[in-house]
Design a protein around this nucleic acid. Structure first.
Lengths: 233, 233
DNA sequence: AAGTGGTCTAGACCACTTG
DNA sequence: AAGTGGTCTAGACCACTTG
């Protein structure tokens, strides 16, 4: 349940779009129809449609209506690669196991890491990404509930969290750190690697125009993963 | 003249920000103050502030007010940092020990790694960079003699190889990979770290307009070094 | 207690597209 | 002429921050 009316309406429309019930080019309910359907004022219905348009899910034309936007090109940022796409580009099979899903509230430590206030609602997902059935990435992600309603209802074996997040809260900025560390027992077990072999760990914080969206820890077996980049001045 | 009220307000605030009258961190008029100043309703004043926040010019906090945002840093991962500058920027002492210097000729393996023909003359330097006398980076570098004559005569305790190379063969391109690995005996000893602790290893190939200039391996104790980057779309 | 931004209402007039 | 989105008003209650 969303805390606000406009978020409720946005989520309802988003679900209909993502399920395929509403396809690109289809007209979505008008502001006045949403007023009736959801029992809100027009300004509230309007806000839902405006924000979906901002996120790139709708296009709106005065006198005509609001329409589901064409599937956007996936490359919003080339620097941050989606692990699933990366694996598929190598011609390999990507699969994903969901190890955990929970809802929690920021304590002091988490608030500091994320740059948020204490007591804000978060989702947390813990996933394992495999390349040809060999573990490649252990992903632990905190997501700001407010900016990504519906996160907990996603099927992450079909679409990565990144893909969902870039749809609901398009990336405007990110910062990340890369470290070499030893894995803990749990991470080593998940990645099927010894605890005395190094991991490449990426800690990445992503932002949309509405602020921090998520904080992800991505652990990779040092043996099986390298980070490449090309620089053009 | 703007056609709409909210655009008029936005333009007025933007002018004050861009002129420097309002500086990063300064509070801008509240919604209610704008209502009085511009003779509009609060929803209209609000829209002006919201859109400026979306554009990244303002940050807004409930209970506090709206403030001119900090100038966005334009740093990107496309930046190759000089280890000496990086250390000095932290306000620490950089020092460097020359562990080895030699001249050699590419064999088959080296030719492949560098993307050169066999039998080309190379310089090789092996250095240790310290931060406040604690080892931070072990640097092994192959340099194409043809493009960097005089390399062997440099005093690397005064200027890093990067600094010299960027002067004689300006960087046009680079590719690099980042890995988590265990150090060998020699590297661990140089870095004063145990052999069972991970290293962050960067392998970087640099190009000038005349082709490959150098290939560097940069080893860092995982404990003491992290790689940060900021991405702006 | 006073001020801030966040959400929401129930209206209004308008420009625009279509049938 | 009927419906759409675009702009705007004058209120309301709320959560949050500070003095």
């Amino acid at each position: 349940m969303s805390a606000t009316q406009y978020a409720r309406i946005k989520q309802a429309l988003r679900t209909r779009i993502e399920s395929g019930e509403l396809r690109p080019g289809d007209r979505v309910p008008s502001e006045n129809q949403l007023v009736t359907q959801f029992g809100v004022s027009r300004m509230t219905a309007r806000r839902a449609l405006l924000e979906l348009a901002e996120d790139g899910l709708l296009t709106r034309t005065q006198g005509l209506g609001s329409f589901v936007a064409d599937n956007r090109p996936v490359s919003s940022i080339t620097q941050i690669r989606n692990i699933a796409e990366e694996i598929r580009q190598r011609g390999h099979l990507h699969s994903c196991r969901v190890l955990g899903l929970e809802t929690l509230v920021t304590d002091a430590a988490l608030a500091l890491k994320l740059g948020l206030a204490e007591g804000e609602e978060l989702f947390r997902s813990e996933l394992l990404h495999l390349e040809n059935d060999v573990p490649l990435q252990w992903e632990s992600r905190y997501v700001r509930a407010q900016l990504a309603p519906g996160y907990m209802d996603q099927d992450f074996t079909a679409h990565t969290p990144s893909a969902f997040l870039s749809a609901v809260a398009p990336l405007t900025e990110a910062d990340q750190t890369v470290e070499a560390v030893l894995p803990g027992q749990a991470v080593a077990a998940a990645l099927q690697m010894p605890t005395d072999q190094p991991c490449l760990k990426i800690t990445r914080r992503t932002f949309s125009h509405r602020g921090v969206v998520s904080l992800a820890e991505l652990w990779h077996p040092g043996e099986r993963y390298r980070l490449g980049s090309h620089i053009d001045t």
